[in-house]
C-alpha cells in the first residue's frame, strides 16, 4: 500500500466560545485523487480544512502529510517544509493587495524557496498558465474579477508544488458564471494534471465529475464516507438525504 498524500486521525477541535466543532474526524487522501468535503453550512468544513492546512492546531488527533507527522496529539510541527507541502485556497481569494498577479505567485518561490528572481518568475508564469491566467500577470488584484482573483490564488498555491491542495469553498463568493470558470480550472487540475486535492464545496456537479472520494460532514462529525456515488443514494442517511435535497 502506498503512503497517502494526507492522512488525518481523530481530529477534534473546540472554539473557545462556540464549543465543540469537530469531533474525532479521520480521513485519508490518496495521491492523485480528489477528495470532496460536503456538508451544510456550519458543519465544520472550514475548521477541518484549517486544521489540515496546519493553520489551526486541533485539540487532539494527528495529521500526516506524505507520511510525515505534521500534527501529533494536537501539536503542530514547526517545520516550514511540512507546512508548505500543504497548499491552501480560501473562500476569499485574499491576494496580496500591493502586488501584481505575477508577484503574488512569485513571492513565495523567491522568499520561501529562495529561488532567484528570474527562476521564481518563470515558475510563477507556468503556474499562472495552468490556471489560464498568464495574460493577467501584470494586473493588480483590484483590476481582476472575482473569478480571476481566485484563479490567481490557486496558482499562488500551486506554484509551491504542494503534496496536497486544500480548497475551501473556492467559489462560494462568486456568481454562477464565475463559479463555472473556477470549477473548470479545478476540474482540469484534477483530471488532467492529477493534482491531489481536498475540496470543500456545495457544487455537486463538480463532486460527481471530479471527486474520487467524498466525506459528508454533519455537526462536526464525518457522518458518511464513500465515492461520488454517495450523491446518488437516497435513504442511507436522513441527514445526507436532507442535505442533498437542499443542494
Amino acid at each position: 500500500m502506498t503512503t497517502p498524500a494526507l492522512e488525518a486521525q481523530g481530529i477534534s477541535k473546540r472554539w473557545p466560545r462556540t464549543g465543540a466543532v469537530l469531533a474525532d474526524c479521520s480521513l485519508r487522501v490518496e495521491r492523485r485523487t480528489v477528495h470532496a468535503l460536503i456538508g451544510a453550512s456550519g458543519s465544520g468544513k472550514s475548521t477541518l480544512l484549517r486544521c489540515l492546512g496546519l493553520l489551526e492546531p486541533p485539540d487532539a488527533g494527528s495529521i500526516l502529510v506524505d507520511g510525515v507527522l505534521a500534527v501529533d496529539q494536537g501539536f503542530v510541527a514547526q517545520d516550514r517544509s511540512v507546512r508548505r507541502s500543504v497548499g491552501m485556497v480560501f473562500q476569499e481569494p485574499s491576494l496580496f493587495a500591493h502586488l501584481s498577479a505575477l508577484a503574488n505567485v512569485a513571492l513565495a518561490p523567491h522568499r520561501v524557496l529562495g529561488l532567484d528572481p528570474d527562476a521564481a518568475r518563470n515558475r510563477a508564469c507556468s503556474a499562472l498558465d495552468r490556471v489560464h491566467a498568464l495574460h493577467l500577470a501584470d494586473r493588480r488584484p483590484d483590476e481582476l474579477s472575482g473569478g480571476e482573483r481566485q484563479r490567481v490564488a490557486i496558482a499562488r498555491a500551486l506554484v509551491m508544488e504542494p503534496t496536497v491542495l486544500l480548497c475551501d469553498e473556492p467559489t462560494s463568493a462568486l456568481d454562477p458564471l464565475l463559479t463555472r470558470e473556477v470549477m473548470a480550472v479545478l476540474r482540469e487540475l484534477a483530471l488532467d494534471a492529477g493534482t491531489t486535492m481536498v475540496v470543500a464545496t456545495h457544487d455537486l456537479d463538480f463532486v460527481a465529475a471530479a471527486a474520487d472520494s467524498v466525506d459528508f460532514l454533519h455537526a462536526g462529525r464525518i457522518r458518511m464516507s464513500g465515492t461520488a456515488d454517495l450523491l446518488g443514494t437516497r435513504g442511507l442517511d436522513d441527514e445526507l438525504d436532507r442535505f442533498l435535497q437542499r443542494s
Binding site: L54, M88, F90, S94, R111, A157
Partner: peptide, 11 residues
C-alpha cells in the same frame, strides 16, 4: 486572511 495566506505558503 493575509496572514493565513502567507502562513499557508510557508512564510
Amino acid at each position: 486572511s493575509q496572514w493565513d495566506a502567507a502562513r499557508a505558503l510557508g512564510f
